[in-house]
């Protein structure tokens, strides 16, 4: 191939050519790509099983060129546990939204994390139930308007949003917990590193890893994609600080 026509950017092998169903400006597409790039980089596509959630990304199995299970709402960590325990030689990940993971699936994620299940969870937090039309989630910010809190989330009635990585970081077992965001190219580069590291930890058998990715939902937030990115920076980042909350190497002494 001559120098001028060298391919420098292409669809990752771990993704199919299927056009996604996501709304314009939704960041699921970016996050899918980050996961697919990690699988490609580590050369594990053919040895990977994904577990799909119920939520906007329920059809993720159409976009990945890997085997997939479609879980009941919130139960992806239980399916991943059962699968990985029977096939410890395979790479397993769950892909879950905030309603799926932090509400109906709270029990499953906490116990999978605490058992140190050796799979990776990609946790996409856009503070809302997207697929069902924008209802309040456990992660909805105080005052944020949704269809089930039309006057804005009232914390006196519904409590404060749950910070999942901080909650999981209280457990001694998890190997790697990090919160990242995908609202700017710089943040996407950092997110890519974190996602890759989570899979590396799995391959090294270090235990449970979870990456929380702050994500936008322009449709249900009622904003344009660029407004949504700005709103994320101004509102989500102060409440959901980015950073590493648990790293096996650093945490070893704490146990």
């Amino acid at each position: 191939m001559d120098q001028q026509n060298q391919t420098i950017f292409a669809r990752p092998d771990a993704m199919t050519e299927t056009v996604t169903h996501y709304c314009p400006g939704c960041t699921h597409g970016i996050i899918h790509r980050l996961v697919a790039e990690a699988l490609d980089d580590l050369g594990v596509r053919e040895n990977t099983l994904g577990v799909a959630p119920v939520g906007c990304s329920v059809l993720i199995y159409n976009y990945f060129d890997t085997d997939f299970l479609e879980a009941p709402h919130g139960r992806a960590p239980a399916l991943a546990t059962g699968f990985k325990r029977m096939r410890p030689d395979m790479v397993v990940f769950t892909y879950q939204g905030d309603g799926d993971l932090a509400s109906i699936g709270m029990s499953e994620i906490i116990h999978a994390a605490n058992r140190g299940e050796k799979f990776t969870t990609i946790f996409v937090n856009n503070t809302i139930y997207g697929m069902t039309g924008g209802q309040m989630a456990p992660t909805t910010l105080p005052g944020q308007v949704t269809t089930t809190c039309p006057a804005g989330r009232d914390v006196s009635r519904t409590g404060y949003p749950i910070r999942m990585v901080e909650l999981l970081a209280a457990l001694a077992t998890p190997a790697y917990l990090q919160r990242v965001s995908v609202h700017t190219p710089q943040h996407i580069i950092q997110a890519k590193k974190a996602v890759r590291k989570a899979f590396e930890y799995q391959l090294e058998d270090r235990g449970f890893s979870l990456i929380e990715l702050l994500s936008t939902c322009p449709t249900n937030w009622g904003m344009t994609p660029s407004e949504a990115s700005k709103w994320l920076a101004e509102n989500l980042l102060p409440y959901y600080p980015l950073g590493c909350y648990k790293d096996f190497d650093k945490a070893e002494g704490d146990k």
Partner: peptide, 21 residues
């Protein structure tokens, strides 16, 4: 493999994952 789950809800879903192998 022997595994005690956190609830019957989780156990049956673990079975789902395990049966897929």
């Amino acid at each position: 493999l022997f595994l005690q789950g956190e609830s019957e809800l989780a156990v049956a879903n673990m079975l789902f994952g395990a049966a897929s192998t």
